[in-house]
Structures are given as structure tokens and as C-alpha cells.
């Protein structure tokens, strides 16, 4: 099947991949994220047992499903795990051509606040554009690109508004599906949803969530099932960076946007993140902060002290969690004690 006859599908991993650029090339974005519980034996063999299990699950998904419908996979360096996943896939493609993996690419966006880092990010976005052109056979006009950038910025702003209106699981479900929708469709649906009456607020403890990335509602839903309501977060895959827009709708503007959007648990500064989280938590009426981290995803443990000193709210630490899992009894007890919950 030639690329001209159908819409190319480009898979992405991590938060540093400029999905606007994929859309500008007329391709669909698919976020590679597996649901807990699939067979991870081979992926674990390849990536080792010392990795964030989310990356192992993504690789398991690539190995298990028929990757053929994917035209390419774009990864980034938003965390050690995503970058190691790139290296693992690269080696697998090199040594096992019979697996017919789609082409892969690393867009290595860096974030230090220096001109040289911005320049490097700019070159990386340029290289990604060249690869996308080769994969899709399309060259977007400046107007195509500008539209994709503006619409995606708008979709993110609407998501930020949504964040203030709904519970955590609903928000994270929106958040992960919006990346995979054409931005114009996402804008239309988000507007319609925002125009509807807000859901009644359930009787549960409002909390702010920080820690590991969450590209989907499963973990947030499990946290909420313990009697919490996630009203704010600074997670990769969540509301982090939603309000950062491109200063100009061009390749350079896009590169600058992604260079600036580096405040994840893995790449950002702990006290700055903690200060922002504390403000968001307070604004949204959170009564506690939940720091959730998967096993082998250590960045969050380095932020707990900063969070504690940035806020007077109690901090509930749920670290070393199995992929997709939540230590329910620990959380329920902590919510009862610290959040004054009736659960």
C-alpha cells in the first residue's frame, strides 16, 4: 500500500515529540503505551530489569502487536527510559531485520536555558521534519504548519480548561486521546464538552498528583477509587506544559516551544516544579499532594523534599509501585489521616 493511498500512522513515545509536525505532514499520531498486564518477558530481556516498567510495556506492545500498520516510531529523551527504549529498538532493528520493525527516529530535544541548547533543539526539529517528509512523501507549506501549530496550541489550552472542570480520570482520558486526534477535531470535541453542564463534584478528597508520567487514565482512576479526586497535577502526559504555546507558528517557533517545555519530573528543577505544584494545588483546593512513582522510576523520589518544603499540605508518598498499580491500603489510610477523608 503506498503512502499516498492512506493516511500514514506515526507512533510517538514521550512528551518531547512535536506531534504538530506529524500532523502538518498529513500523518496520524498514535501514542505507544500498553495497558498493564501484557506479556513483557522478551521486552524485559532486551531492556533489562532496571528500567521503568512503562518503557518495557511499550516495547512489549511493539513486539507483540503487528507493527506493520505503523509507518514509523518517533522517540525522544524526555527520560532515561524513553531514550533507552530508542537504543533497544535501534539494536533490535539492526540485529533482527526479520522482525520488520518500522523505521525509528530519536528527536533529542534538550532543555537547558542556554542559546546552545535551543540551537540544538532547533536542529533536532529540522531533522525530524526531514524524516517525516521522507516517510510521508509530503512537504507541508508554511500555512499547513502554522495551522497545525496553532490548532494544537488551542487544543492544549482547552485541555487546561478541562483540567479545572473534571475529575482526574476524565481529564487523563481526554488528555491521552486528544494527542491522537487531529487537532481540529480535538478542538471541536473539547469545546462541546466544555459547553456541557459540569458533572456534580463527588464527595472525595481533592489531591494534586506529581511523579511518574501518566499517559492514560488507569492509575489516576485507581487513585480516585481510593477516595481521592485528582484536581491538579504536574505529570508528564497530564497537565504539564499545556499552557505553553509556540511564540510563532513556524519550525523555529515549534522548536522553541518544546525546548521551553522541559519541566517534567525527569528533566525539570525540583524546587521550581514544587513551587508551581503548590500553587496549582492550592488554587484547586487540594487537601493533600500524592507523589506517585513506578518501580525503577526514581526521579520523583528526588522531588519529595522540595514538595514538602513548598507546601503545608500533607504529602502522601506512593513510590515503588508496580506498573499500573496503586498500593490501595496505604493510600486509603493516608487519605483518611491526612486528607480528613470519609472513605
Amino acid at each position: 500500500m503506498s503512502a499516498a493511498l492512506r493516511t500514514p500512522v506515526i507512533a510517538v513515545v514521550g512528551r518531547d515529540v512535536p506531534i504538530e509536525l506529524i500532523e502538518a505532514h498529513g500523518a496520524m499520531v498514535r501514542r505507544l503505551e500498553l495497558h498493564p498486564g501484557s506479556d513483557v518477558a522478551e521486552a524485559t530481556e532486551i531492556l533489562g530489569t532496571g528500567m521503568d516498567p512503562a518503557a518495557i510495556a511499550v516495547l512489549a506492545g511493539v513486539l507483540e502487536t503487528d507493527a506493520a500498520p505503523l509507518d514509523a516510531i518517533v522517540l525522544c529523551s524526555d527520560s532515561d527510559a524513553t531514550q533507552r527504549l530508542f537504543f533497544g529498538l535501534r539494536e533490535l532493528a539492526r540485529t533482527k531485520p526479520e522482525r520488520a520493525l518500522p523505521p525509528i527516529h530519536l528527536v533529542d530535544i534538550v532543555h537547558l536555558p542556554r542559546a546552545s541548547s535551543l540551537e540544538y533543539a532547533r536542529e533536532e526539529v529540522g531533522l525530524l521534519a526531514a524524516r517525516l517528509q521522507a516517510w510521508t512523501g509530503r512537504t507541508p507549506s508554511a500555512a499547513d504548519l502554522a495551522r497545525a501549530v496553532r490548532e494544537r496550541d488551542l487544543a492544549r489550552l482547552l485541555l487546561a480548561e478541562m483540567r479545572r472542570r473534571v475529575d482526574g480520570a476524565t481529564f487523563f482520558a481526554w488528555r491521552s486521546s486528544v494527542d491522537e486526534m487531529p487537532a481540529a477535531v480535538a478542538v471541536e470535541r473539547l469545546r462541546a464538552a466544555l459547553a456541557a453542564e459540569p458533572d456534580p463534584i463527588p464527595d472525595s478528597v481533592p489531591v494534586a498528583l506529581t511523579g511518574s508520567s501518566q499517559y492514560g487514565p488507569e492509575v489516576v482512576a485507581a487513585i480516585e477509587a481510593c477516595g481521592a479526586r485528582v484536581v491538579a497535577d504536574d505529570c508528564a502526559g497530564g497537565s504539564l506544559g499545556l499552557e505553553i504555546g509556540a511564540r510563532e507558528p513556524s519550525l523555529d517557533g515549534l522548536a522553541e516551544r518544546y525546548w521551553r517545555d522541559g519541566d517534567s519530573a525527569h528533566r525539570g528543577s525540583a524546587p521550581e516544579r514544587a513551587a508551581r505544584l503548590a500553587i496549582a494545588a492550592e488554587r484547586q483546593g487540594a487537601r493533600a499532594i500524592v507523589s506517585y512513582a513506578r518501580r525503577r522510576d526514581d526521579a520523583a523520589s528526588w522531588e519529595v523534599a522540595a514538595v514538602r518544603s513548598a507546601t503545608s499540605l500533607p504529602v502522601i508518598v506512593l513510590h515503588d509501585q508496580e506498573y499500573g498499580g496503586v498500593d490501595r491500603s496505604l493510600l486509603i489510610d493516608a487519605l483518611g489521616e491526612k486528607g480528613g477523608a470519609r472513605v
Binding site: I46, L47, G48, T49, M51, D80, R84, G88
Partner: peptide, 8 residues
């Protein structure tokens, strides 16, 4: 059990 792995 460290992130380097050794498979390759």
C-alpha cells in the same frame, strides 16, 4: 538490576 541491561 540496573538500567543498562546487557542483552545486546
Amino acid at each position: 538490576d540496573d538500567p543498562r541491561g546487557g542483552w545486546a
